[in-house]
Design a protein around this nucleic acid. Structure first.
Length: 177
DNA sequence: GTAAGGATTGGC
DNA sequence: CCAATCCTTACT
């Protein structure tokens, strides 16, 4: 079984509320297997939560469109989209069916910035809808960090979302190894 | 069909 | 500070 992976997080991990997943996923490994067989395995060090139709910073707050359709899926699949004409934003859909939520991967160990993460991972539009539970090229692996600590701050680049949603502390950064 | 703007980045 | 660059969306 070439892609067997004992530590891979299964679908149920991602079907919980995005606000429970964010602190949990910090420090776990994001694994990318390239076409040439090379494997990149890096700790997730920074994420942001986008949660529900009421969150004015969440793309799904504007309703269900072809682009945001996947966010209404139950957790464990990829929502990826292009911003500013040049950067792909890699998100993991979270929660149960019809609860549009996702977490944006902002940084990995040694790679800060969501645009740089997708450049490193070589992930683009063809990863839209990728299932982390079964994919042979992208998945998350368990990694327990005893005494894990993290800080929360407002999300980046969402000034348009109004005072409440732009100031809520839904950016999570690992502050321990 | 047309137009506006964005979950960023790197360079000035 | 600001341009790059193009997809998605909301209009006419």
């Amino acid at each position: 079984m070439p892609n067997a992976c004992f530590n891979r997080l299964s679908k149920s991990f991602f079907e919980r509320d995005v606000l429970d997943i964010c602190p949990d996923i910090l420090g776990k490994y994001l694994v990318r297997k390239f076409d040439d067989g090379r494997i990149l395995r890096k700790k997730i060090t920074e994420v942001e939560a986008y949660r529900g139709h009421e969150d004015l910073a969440c793309h799904a707050s504007k309703g269900r469109t072809p682009r945001t359709e996947i966010m209404f899926h139950s957790g464990g699949v990829i929502y990826i989209y292009l911003v500013y004409g040049m950067y792909w934003m890699l998100n993991i859909v979270s929660g149960p069916d019809d609860h549009p939520q996702a977490l944006l991967i902002r940084s990995l160990e040694g790679c800060t910035g969501p645009g740089k993460v997708t450049k490193l991972l070589e992930t683009g539009k063809d990863f839209y809808g990728e299932d982390l539970g079964i994919s042979s090229r992208l998945w998350i692996e368990e990694n327990d960090i005893p005494g894990k600590t993290f800080i929360t701050t407002p999300r980046v680049g969402v000034d348009y979302a109004g005072d409440y949603w732009k100031n809520i502390n839904w950016r999570f950064q690992l502050s321990s190894q």
